[in-house]
């Protein structure tokens, strides 16, 4: 992660409109969302968001406090990267030829990625891991030609036995 980025873990009510409330708060207060991921939790009434934000200490402080004021936000915490497991997923379609195919598949092994679709002129690869690993893979793939790619925002969960 970049130097001024921080990770927020946010537990929210699982009903319509919550994503708009959260993203709207960022938009109107001028905070930058680098990625936002939302999904269900073990409790069907709650969803969990992992939000990666860029900003200084002032923005970090205000983001947490302002989010906590939303009625639908049940808990919000900064998750220090060094105390968390951070994972992101990348699906990437890379152009290949008869000559380059083996080089690409070799890289897939080195990156502990997976080929999930295989064609004569393209392979689609699934990579999971830390953001920096995905960045490295994208750089590698660039030399062969990226047909298309999509990344899910990062997920973060603290190490140890405690919960948000």
């Amino acid at each position: 992660m970049k130097k001024d980025q921080f990770i927020l873990g946010v537990i929210v009510s699982n009903h319509f409109g919550v994503l708009t409330r959260v993203s709207g708060l960022f938009a109107r207060r001028g905070y930058n969302i680098d990625s936002l991921n939302v999904g269900e939790t073990e409790d069907p009434g709650l969803s969990r968001m992992t939000i990666i934000v860029s900003g200084d200490d002032y923005i970090k402080d205000q983001t947490v406090k302002q989010l906590a004021k939303l009625q639908d936000v049940k808990r919000v915490e900064l998750i220090p990267e060094e105390k968390a497991s951070v994972r992101e997923m990348l699906l990437i379609k890379v152009r290949v030829t008869r000559e380059t195919r083996s080089e690409v598949t070799e890289a897939v092994n080195i990156f502990r990625a997976k080929v999930i679709d295989f064609n004569a002129d393209a392979v689609t690869i699934e990579v999971t891991g830390h953001t920096s690993k995905l960045d490295a893979f994208v750089e590698f793939a660039r030399t062969f030609g990226i047909i298309e790619m999509c990344r899910a925002g990062a997920l973060a969960i603290s190490r140890g036995s405690t919960a948000l």
Binding site: Y58, D61, Q62, K65, Q66, K69
Partner: peptide
């Protein structure tokens, strides 16, 4: 009473 006002 509003924590978000502190240091805003």
């Amino acid at each position: 009473i509003d924590p978000a006002e502190i240091d805003k």
